[in-house]
């Protein structure tokens, strides 16, 4: 389980994430949506231990984010937005290097790397230099690396932005299968409506660093326009004096009413 309580991150006078609280259970696939600069990347960076939070408390699978950061790093797989890879390394060499850093034991390392290459359809690219790969293939390499050590929590920052339609579908089904089989937590950010609808079981909407909406019922999207639903949720949140995200059935009813208007 992932529990975030009153998470705040400030960069000087700019508050990127403000009092965000949510809980994610095992098996959930949560999409974090919001405008550019809403704080999605910052939120994932905090959860991945890359950035320290200014205030607030996070617990991932029983480990405290501040005190037990190395434990959290070993159970989390984080893929940054830019897909940073070492350009001068070959695919298999890169995966072996990262497996070493992820402290996968020597006998197991070779098997894991082989499985990752096969699982993400990278066999024909395994001896190629990363600098020669297309953007979509690079994404697959990054995803292979992120999932290679069987993490309990997957944190993916815009994982499908450079993928073509077929790659998107294949990756979505791959992540779904990982999530289903291993009962993992998946948190991802995306601007792609189709990806969110096909992959997410829950949507968290950030607005100017604040938690504007926490939608656990995805059926609301099937009937109404995706953007309209999120916009309505955000408006409700902004009008609300209570600093709690709308997750209750009344909230859904309010969305319905607003959409009808």
């Amino acid at each position: 389980m992932l529990v975030a309580e009153n998470l705040t991150k400030a960069f000087g006078s700019t508050v990127a994430v403000k009092n965000v609280s949510f809980t994610v259970c095992r098996g959930e696939r949560v999409a974090i949506v919001g405008e550019n600069g809403a704080g999605k990347t910052t939120l994932l960076r905090i959860l991945s231990t890359f950035l320290p939070a200014t205030s607030g408390h996070v617990e991932i699978c029983g480990f405290d984010l501040v005190c037990e950061a190395p434990c959290i790093r070993s159970i989390c797989g984080y893929m940054p937005e830019k897909t940073p890879l070492y350009e001068n390394m070959r695919v298999s060499e890169y995966l072996k290097y990262m497996a070493r850093l992820r402290r996968i034991p020597q006998p197991e390392r070779r098997i894991r790397v082989h499985e990752a290459i096969a699982g993400y359809d990278l066999v024909k690219y395994s001896t190629q230099k990363i600098s020669t790969l297309s953007k979509g293939t690079r994404k697959r390499v990054a995803l292979a690396e992120t999932t290679m050590h069987d993490p309990d929590v997957l944190l993916l920052d815009d994982p499908f932005c450079d993928c073509d339609l077929f790659q998107k579908l294949s990756l979505v089904s791959h992540i779904k299968s990982i999530n289903k089989l291993e009962n993992r937590i998946v948190l991802f950010t995306s601007h792609d409506k189709d990806v969110i609808l096909s992959l997410a079981t829950r949507v968290i909407c950030l607005y100017k660093g604040e938690l504007a909406a926490d939608l656990k019922d995805m059926s609301v999207f099937s009937e109404k326009n995706f953007q309209d639903v999120l916009k309505t949720w955000t408006e409700i949140r902004l009008r609300s004096t209570v600093h709690e995200p709308h997750t209750d059935p009344q909230g859904n009813a309010a969305v319905e009413r607003n959409l009808e208007k």
Partner: peptide
């Protein structure tokens, strides 16, 4: 610049 440090700092390496 390339962002690889971000990946490196989220592995279990101090």
């Amino acid at each position: 610049e390339s962002g690889t440090l971000e990946g490196l700092l989220t592995t279990p390496v101090s």
